[in-house]
Protein backbone atom coordinates (compact mmCIF):
# COMPACT_ATOMS: atom_id res chain seq x y z
CA UNK A 1 0.00 0.00 0.00
CA UNK A 2 2.90 2.34 0.79
CA UNK A 3 4.49 1.59 -2.60
CA UNK A 4 1.24 2.41 -4.37
CA UNK A 5 0.90 5.66 -2.44
CA UNK A 6 4.47 6.80 -3.20
CA UNK A 7 4.28 5.98 -6.90
CA UNK A 8 0.91 7.72 -7.20
CA UNK A 9 2.25 10.83 -5.46
CA UNK A 10 5.30 11.01 -7.76
CA UNK A 11 3.19 10.69 -10.89
CA UNK A 12 0.75 13.27 -9.44
CA UNK A 13 3.57 15.78 -8.99
CA UNK A 14 4.77 15.17 -12.55
CA UNK A 15 1.26 15.69 -13.93
CA UNK A 16 0.94 18.97 -12.06
CA UNK A 17 4.31 20.15 -13.32
CA UNK A 18 3.31 19.33 -16.89
CA UNK A 19 -0.07 21.02 -16.51
CA UNK A 20 1.58 24.16 -15.07
CA UNK A 21 3.95 24.45 -18.05
CA UNK A 22 1.18 23.78 -20.55
CA UNK A 23 -1.17 26.33 -19.02
CA UNK A 24 1.59 28.91 -18.78
CA UNK A 25 2.30 28.74 -22.51
CA UNK A 26 -1.34 28.35 -23.56
CA UNK A 27 -2.57 31.40 -21.67
CA UNK A 28 0.21 33.49 -23.21
CA UNK A 29 -0.60 32.17 -26.69
CA UNK A 30 -4.32 32.91 -26.51
CA UNK A 31 -5.16 36.19 -28.30
CA UNK A 32 -5.89 39.07 -25.94
CA UNK A 33 -3.75 41.30 -23.82
CA UNK A 34 -4.29 41.85 -20.06
CA UNK A 35 -2.94 45.38 -20.36
CA UNK A 36 -5.61 46.27 -22.93
CA UNK A 37 -8.28 44.76 -20.72
CA UNK A 38 -7.01 46.81 -17.77
CA UNK A 39 -6.47 50.13 -19.50
CA UNK A 40 -9.28 49.98 -22.02
CA UNK A 41 -9.22 50.81 -25.70
CA UNK A 42 -8.33 54.46 -25.32
CA UNK A 43 -5.02 54.00 -23.48
CA UNK A 44 -1.93 55.35 -25.21
CA UNK A 45 0.85 53.06 -26.40
CA UNK A 46 3.37 54.54 -23.94
CA UNK A 47 0.98 53.95 -21.05
CA UNK A 48 0.43 50.36 -22.07
CA UNK A 49 4.14 49.71 -22.35
CA UNK A 50 4.82 51.37 -18.98
CA UNK A 51 2.27 49.16 -17.25
CA UNK A 52 3.48 46.06 -19.09
CA UNK A 53 7.00 46.79 -17.84
CA UNK A 54 5.84 47.47 -14.27
CA UNK A 55 4.00 44.16 -14.15
CA UNK A 56 6.90 42.24 -15.62
CA UNK A 57 4.89 41.21 -18.67
CA UNK A 58 7.54 42.51 -21.04
CA UNK A 59 10.07 39.93 -19.83
CA UNK A 60 10.91 36.99 -22.12
CA UNK A 61 8.41 34.17 -21.74
CA UNK A 62 10.98 31.75 -20.36
CA UNK A 63 12.05 34.28 -17.71
CA UNK A 64 8.41 34.67 -16.73
CA UNK A 65 8.11 30.88 -16.51
CA UNK A 66 11.21 30.64 -14.30
CA UNK A 67 9.80 33.42 -12.10
CA UNK A 68 6.52 31.53 -11.88
CA UNK A 69 8.19 28.30 -10.72
CA UNK A 70 10.44 30.25 -8.38
CA UNK A 71 7.31 31.68 -6.77
CA UNK A 72 5.66 28.28 -6.77
CA UNK A 73 8.51 26.80 -4.74
CA UNK A 74 7.97 29.53 -2.17
CA UNK A 75 4.18 29.01 -2.40
CA UNK A 76 3.90 32.53 -3.80
CA UNK A 77 1.81 32.44 -6.96
CA UNK A 78 1.82 36.20 -7.38
CA UNK A 79 -0.88 38.83 -7.22
CA UNK A 80 -3.87 39.34 -9.47
CA UNK A 81 -3.12 41.82 -12.27
CA UNK A 82 -6.46 43.47 -11.64
CA UNK A 83 -7.26 43.43 -7.93
CA UNK A 84 -3.59 43.30 -6.75
CA UNK A 85 -4.59 40.73 -4.15
CA UNK A 86 -2.51 37.57 -3.74
CA UNK A 87 -4.09 35.00 -6.05
CA UNK A 88 -3.82 32.32 -3.37
CA UNK A 89 -6.04 34.43 -1.11
CA UNK A 90 -8.59 34.95 -3.90
CA UNK A 91 -8.83 31.23 -4.55
CA UNK A 92 -8.77 30.11 -0.93
CA UNK A 93 -11.65 32.48 -0.27
CA UNK A 94 -13.69 30.52 -2.83
CA UNK A 95 -12.64 26.96 -2.08
CA UNK A 96 -15.14 26.50 0.79
CA UNK A 97 -18.07 27.52 -1.43
CA UNK A 98 -16.97 25.16 -4.18
CA UNK A 99 -16.38 22.28 -1.75
CA UNK A 100 -19.74 22.90 -0.07
CA UNK A 101 -21.58 22.79 -3.39
CA UNK A 102 -19.62 19.77 -4.62
CA UNK A 103 -20.36 17.73 -1.52
CA UNK A 104 -24.03 18.73 -1.49
CA UNK A 105 -24.45 17.91 -5.19
CA UNK A 106 -22.69 14.60 -4.74
CA UNK A 107 -24.97 13.80 -1.80
CA UNK A 108 -28.03 14.57 -3.94
CA UNK A 109 -26.64 12.42 -6.76
CA UNK A 110 -25.88 9.46 -4.52
CA UNK A 111 -29.21 9.72 -2.68
CA UNK A 112 -31.14 9.70 -5.95
CA UNK A 113 -28.97 7.42 -8.09
CA UNK A 114 -28.55 4.41 -5.81
CA UNK A 115 -32.25 3.68 -5.23
CA UNK A 116 -33.02 4.46 -8.90
CA UNK A 117 -30.19 2.30 -10.27
CA UNK A 118 -30.78 -0.62 -7.91
CA UNK A 119 -34.52 -0.58 -8.58
CA UNK A 120 -33.94 -0.61 -12.32
CA UNK A 121 -31.47 -3.50 -12.04
CA UNK A 122 -33.49 -5.77 -9.80
CA UNK A 123 -36.74 -5.05 -11.69
CA UNK A 124 -35.13 -5.32 -15.10
CA UNK A 125 -37.48 -4.97 -18.09
CA UNK A 126 -40.42 -3.99 -15.92
CA UNK A 127 -42.26 -0.69 -15.63
CA UNK A 128 -39.97 0.17 -12.68
CA UNK A 129 -36.93 -0.24 -14.89
CA UNK A 130 -38.35 1.79 -17.78
CA UNK A 131 -39.53 4.55 -15.44
CA UNK A 132 -36.21 4.74 -13.59
CA UNK A 133 -34.22 4.86 -16.79
CA UNK A 134 -36.66 7.31 -18.36
CA UNK A 135 -36.24 9.63 -15.38
CA UNK A 136 -32.47 9.30 -15.56
CA UNK A 137 -32.50 9.98 -19.31
CA UNK A 138 -34.50 13.11 -18.62
CA UNK A 139 -32.06 14.14 -15.89
CA UNK A 140 -29.03 13.76 -18.08
CA UNK A 141 -30.70 15.56 -21.00
CA UNK A 142 -31.77 18.71 -19.17
CA UNK A 143 -29.04 21.34 -19.28
CA UNK A 144 -28.18 23.14 -16.05
CA UNK A 145 -28.72 26.59 -17.53
CA UNK A 146 -32.37 25.64 -18.08
CA UNK A 147 -33.01 23.49 -15.02
CA UNK A 148 -31.59 26.14 -12.66
CA UNK A 149 -33.99 28.94 -13.66
CA UNK A 150 -36.91 26.45 -13.72
CA UNK A 151 -36.18 25.39 -10.15
CA UNK A 152 -35.88 29.06 -9.19
CA UNK A 153 -39.26 29.78 -10.76
CA UNK A 154 -40.91 26.89 -8.95
CA UNK A 155 -39.32 26.98 -5.51
CA UNK A 156 -38.44 30.66 -5.19
CA UNK A 157 -40.96 32.66 -7.15
CA UNK A 158 -44.13 30.54 -7.14
CA UNK A 159 -43.80 28.61 -3.88
CA UNK A 160 -41.57 31.19 -2.19
CA UNK A 161 -39.70 28.54 -0.24
CA UNK A 162 -36.09 29.13 -1.17
CA UNK A 163 -33.90 32.11 -2.04
CA UNK A 164 -33.29 32.75 -5.74
CA UNK A 165 -29.51 32.82 -5.55
CA UNK A 166 -26.49 33.75 -3.46
CA UNK A 167 -24.71 31.93 -0.68
CA UNK A 168 -26.44 32.81 2.54
CA UNK A 169 -27.18 29.85 4.74
CA UNK A 170 -28.26 26.29 4.11
CA UNK A 171 -31.42 27.28 2.23
CA UNK A 172 -29.39 28.86 -0.56
CA UNK A 173 -27.52 25.59 -1.10
CA UNK A 174 -30.60 23.53 -1.96
CA UNK A 175 -31.34 24.70 -5.51
CA UNK A 176 -27.76 24.74 -6.85
CA UNK A 177 -27.14 21.30 -5.30
CA UNK A 178 -30.33 19.96 -6.88
CA UNK A 179 -29.44 21.47 -10.25
CA UNK A 180 -25.92 20.11 -10.22
CA UNK A 181 -26.83 16.79 -8.62
CA UNK A 182 -29.62 15.95 -11.09
CA UNK A 183 -27.48 15.29 -14.16
CA UNK A 184 -24.89 13.49 -12.07
CA UNK A 185 -27.56 11.31 -10.46
CA UNK A 186 -28.84 10.37 -13.89
CA UNK A 187 -25.41 9.25 -15.15
CA UNK A 188 -24.69 7.46 -11.90
CA UNK A 189 -28.04 5.63 -11.88
CA UNK A 190 -27.42 4.24 -15.37
CA UNK A 191 -23.94 3.13 -14.38
CA UNK A 192 -25.26 1.45 -11.20
CA UNK A 193 -27.93 -0.39 -13.18
CA UNK A 194 -25.47 -1.64 -15.81
CA UNK A 195 -22.77 -2.84 -13.41
CA UNK A 196 -25.28 -4.34 -11.00
CA UNK A 197 -26.94 -6.32 -13.83
CA UNK A 198 -23.53 -7.67 -14.79
CA UNK A 199 -22.73 -8.73 -11.25
CA UNK A 200 -26.20 -10.22 -10.67
CA UNK A 201 -25.47 -12.73 -13.43
CA UNK A 202 -22.30 -14.00 -11.72
CA UNK A 203 -22.01 -17.47 -10.18
CA UNK A 204 -21.36 -16.27 -6.66
CA UNK A 205 -24.71 -14.44 -6.63
CA UNK A 206 -26.44 -17.65 -7.69
CA UNK A 207 -24.55 -19.43 -4.90
CA UNK A 208 -25.57 -16.82 -2.36
CA UNK A 209 -29.20 -17.15 -3.36
CA UNK A 210 -28.92 -20.97 -3.35
CA UNK A 211 -27.62 -20.75 0.20
CA UNK A 212 -30.92 -19.09 1.05
CA UNK A 213 -29.56 -15.63 1.83
CA UNK A 214 -32.03 -12.83 2.18
CA UNK A 215 -32.38 -10.92 -1.18
CA UNK A 216 -31.57 -7.59 0.52
CA UNK A 217 -28.29 -9.10 1.75
CA UNK A 218 -27.52 -10.55 -1.68
CA UNK A 219 -27.99 -7.18 -3.34
CA UNK A 220 -26.67 -4.91 -0.57
CA UNK A 221 -23.61 -6.89 0.50
CA UNK A 222 -22.59 -9.29 -2.27
CA UNK A 223 -23.73 -7.68 -5.52
CA UNK A 224 -23.35 -4.00 -4.73
CA UNK A 225 -19.90 -4.32 -3.21
CA UNK A 226 -18.64 -6.11 -6.31
CA UNK A 227 -20.28 -3.54 -8.57
CA UNK A 228 -18.65 -0.66 -6.73
CA UNK A 229 -15.37 -0.32 -8.68
CA UNK A 230 -16.66 1.43 -11.83
CA UNK A 231 -19.06 3.43 -9.67
CA UNK A 232 -16.18 4.67 -7.52
CA UNK A 233 -14.30 5.67 -10.68
CA UNK A 234 -17.26 7.65 -11.92
CA UNK A 235 -17.84 9.25 -8.50
CA UNK A 236 -14.17 10.24 -8.35
CA UNK A 237 -14.28 11.80 -11.81
CA UNK A 238 -17.52 13.62 -11.04
CA UNK A 239 -16.17 14.91 -7.75
CA UNK A 240 -13.12 16.20 -9.60
CA UNK A 241 -15.37 18.01 -12.07
CA UNK A 242 -17.40 19.51 -9.23
CA UNK A 243 -14.39 20.64 -7.26
CA UNK A 244 -13.01 22.32 -10.38
CA UNK A 245 -16.05 24.53 -10.24
CA UNK A 246 -19.42 24.13 -11.90
CA UNK A 247 -19.33 27.31 -13.92
CA UNK A 248 -22.87 27.33 -15.33
CA UNK A 249 -24.51 26.52 -12.01
CA UNK A 250 -22.28 29.02 -10.21
CA UNK A 251 -23.31 31.75 -12.64
CA UNK A 252 -27.03 30.94 -12.52
CA UNK A 253 -27.06 30.88 -8.72
CA UNK A 254 -24.43 33.61 -8.17
CA UNK A 255 -22.47 31.00 -6.23
CA UNK A 256 -19.05 32.44 -5.35
CA UNK A 257 -17.01 29.40 -6.35
CA UNK A 258 -13.72 28.68 -8.06
CA UNK A 259 -15.26 28.14 -11.52
CA UNK A 260 -16.72 31.61 -11.73
CA UNK A 261 -13.51 33.37 -10.72
CA UNK A 262 -11.53 31.24 -13.19
CA UNK A 263 -13.76 32.23 -16.10
CA UNK A 264 -13.55 35.88 -15.03
CA UNK A 265 -9.77 35.60 -14.88
CA UNK A 266 -9.58 34.06 -18.35
CA UNK A 267 -11.76 36.78 -19.81
CA UNK A 268 -9.65 39.48 -18.19
CA UNK A 269 -6.43 37.68 -19.18
CA UNK A 270 -5.35 37.79 -15.53
CA UNK A 271 -2.38 35.46 -16.06
CA UNK A 272 -1.33 34.82 -12.43
CA UNK A 273 -4.90 34.10 -11.37
CA UNK A 274 -5.55 31.78 -14.33
CA UNK A 275 -2.31 29.90 -13.64
CA UNK A 276 -3.08 29.52 -9.96
CA UNK A 277 -6.67 28.48 -10.63
CA UNK A 278 -5.65 25.85 -13.16
CA UNK A 279 -2.96 24.60 -10.81
CA UNK A 280 -5.56 24.28 -8.07
CA UNK A 281 -7.96 22.49 -10.40
CA UNK A 282 -5.31 20.06 -11.63
CA UNK A 283 -4.19 19.50 -8.04
CA UNK A 284 -7.80 18.70 -7.13
CA UNK A 285 -8.15 16.27 -10.03
CA UNK A 286 -4.88 14.58 -9.24
CA UNK A 287 -5.75 14.36 -5.55
CA UNK A 288 -9.20 12.90 -6.23
CA UNK A 289 -7.79 10.43 -8.76
CA UNK A 290 -5.04 9.37 -6.41
CA UNK A 291 -7.55 8.90 -3.63
CA UNK A 292 -9.78 6.92 -6.00
CA UNK A 293 -6.83 4.64 -6.84
CA UNK A 294 -6.12 4.15 -3.17
CA UNK A 295 -9.77 3.41 -2.44
CA UNK A 296 -9.66 0.83 -5.28
CA UNK A 297 -6.82 -0.96 -3.61
CA UNK A 298 -8.64 -0.84 -0.31
CA UNK A 299 -11.96 -2.08 -1.75
CA UNK A 300 -10.46 -4.79 -3.97
CA UNK A 301 -7.58 -6.79 -2.46
CA UNK A 302 -6.70 -8.21 -5.93
CA UNK A 303 -5.50 -4.76 -7.07
CA UNK A 304 -3.40 -4.43 -3.90
CA UNK A 305 -1.81 -7.81 -4.56
CA UNK A 306 -1.17 -7.10 -8.27
CA UNK A 307 0.53 -3.76 -7.51
CA UNK A 308 2.51 -5.32 -4.69
CA UNK A 309 3.57 -8.31 -6.82
Amino acid sequence: MLNISVSRLISALLVMLGVSCLVFFLIHLVPGDPIEVMLGESAQLADREALRHALGLDLPLLTQLVNFFDGLLRLDLGVSLHSRQPVVDILLERVPATAELAVAALAVAVAVAFPLGILAAIRKDTLWDYTSMGVSLLGVSIPNFWLGPMLILLFSLWLGWLPVSGREGLASLVLPALTLGTAMAAILARMIRATLLEVLGEDFIRTARAKGLDERRVIGVHALRNALLPIITLLGLQLGVLLAGAVVTEIVFSWPGVGQVTIDAIQRRDYPLVQAAVLLISFTYVLVNTMTDLVYAWVDPRIRLQEGG
Binding site: P149, L153, L157, P163, S165, I251, S254, P256
Partner: peptide, 16 residues
Protein backbone atom coordinates in the same frame (compact mmCIF):
# COMPACT_ATOMS: atom_id res chain seq x y z
CA UNK B 1 -23.19 40.22 -7.79
CA UNK B 2 -25.76 38.32 -9.85
CA UNK B 3 -24.23 37.58 -13.27
CA UNK B 4 -27.23 36.01 -14.96
CA UNK B 5 -29.71 38.69 -16.13
CA UNK B 6 -32.74 36.41 -15.80
CA UNK B 7 -31.82 35.52 -12.23
CA UNK B 8 -31.22 39.20 -11.50
CA UNK B 9 -34.74 39.95 -12.67
CA UNK B 10 -36.20 37.05 -10.65
CA UNK B 11 -34.42 38.28 -7.53
CA UNK B 12 -35.82 41.76 -8.10
CA UNK B 13 -39.35 40.43 -8.52
CA UNK B 14 -39.04 38.33 -5.36
CA UNK B 15 -37.74 41.28 -3.36
CA UNK B 16 -34.22 39.95 -2.86
Amino acid sequence: YVPDPTVRVLKLLRGE
